[in-house]
């Protein structure tokens, strides 16, 4: 399979706190790759570095052949990032927001309209897209943001806790949207601490704790390896074993 993203020996510290202690992983074209781990494990830091928001202290990120440190603009043209705690401009309407974001990626008017139309469909917000974002519920904002992330059909969608803070119904809808979208050739790198979500969505997962990747594999492989019924159990066993050793 084609590797779209290669992360090698990625290290990052905030003062005396080591958020990433050298992580390595690959993301293949058309797959959903998930980073799972507890709060403070380093998932968001890794995603923010890949999204070119933060710079790494050490290590390399190669995306579609581009070095993310040297050519961040090239990376930005081909990725779309959904932060865990993200918002949209309150004074814009939903449709204006989609159009504003699409404008950065569209090469011409036709493509712009295509992106916006896709965004409308993904969001499922219908006529509410004509209302200002300030009047939206948290779930609606999250759907709008996910639509914004996916409408441009990025080569890699980076989703940090995509269903963060959402109720069951909204979470289910968003998972379905992500799952469907990969079928169109988009690769997804996501993070979550919701093991059920990860098991439903991911082709492969990396279990991360305390700035290190402890295991990588498909959910089935990991369940077999650790003789577990689900990823939650796998995760508990790995983390407990790590702490004991």
């Amino acid at each position: 399979m084609d590797v779209i993203l290669r992360v090698k020996n990625l290290k990052k510290s905030y003062g005396k706190i080591f958020a990433l202690k050298g992580i390595d992983f690959d993301v293949f074209k058309g797959e959903i790759f998930a980073l799972i781990g507890p709060n403070g494990a380093g998932k968001s830091t890794a995603l923010r570095i890949i999204a070119t928001l933060l710079s790494a202290d050490e290590g390399t990120i190669e995306f579609m052949g581009y070095d993310a440190r040297r050519e961040p603009e090239r990376v930005r043209e081909n990725i779309s990032y959904l932060p865990e705690e993200a918002g949209a401009y309150r004074n814009l309407t939903g449709i204006d927001y989609l159009r504003f974001m699409a404008n950065f990626y569209a090469r011409d008017e036709r493509e712009l309209e295509e992106f916006v139309k896709r965004g409308e469909e993904i969001s499922g917000l219908g006529v509410r897209l004509k209302d200002k974002v300030g009047s939206y519920s948290k779930g609606m904002v999250r759907k709008l943001l996910l639509a914004r992330t996916l409408m441009i059909k990025p080569k890699l969608a980076i989703l940090d806790e995509p269903t963060s803070g959402l109720d069951v119904i909204n979470s289910l809808e968003i998972r379905e949207i992500i799952k469907d979208f990969v079928k169109e050739g988009v690769s997804v790198l996501l993070s979550s601490h919701n093991m059920l979500e990860i098991e439903f969505l991911s082709d492969r997962v990396a279990i991360i704790d305390n700035g290190r990747i402890l295991e990588t594999g498909t959910p089935e492989e990991l369940k077999d390896k650790y003789s577990s019924k689900n990823l939650e159990e796998v995760f508990r066993r790995i983390v407990t074993y790590e702490k004991v050793s």
């Binding site: 603009e73 930005r76 990725i79 993200a86």
Partner: peptide
């Protein structure tokens, strides 16, 4: 405050 800066910084614009 509205958490829009992170998104803006990842779009392809200088």
């Amino acid at each position: 405050q509205d958490k829009t800066l992170e998104t803006l910084l990842t779009v392809p614009i200088s």
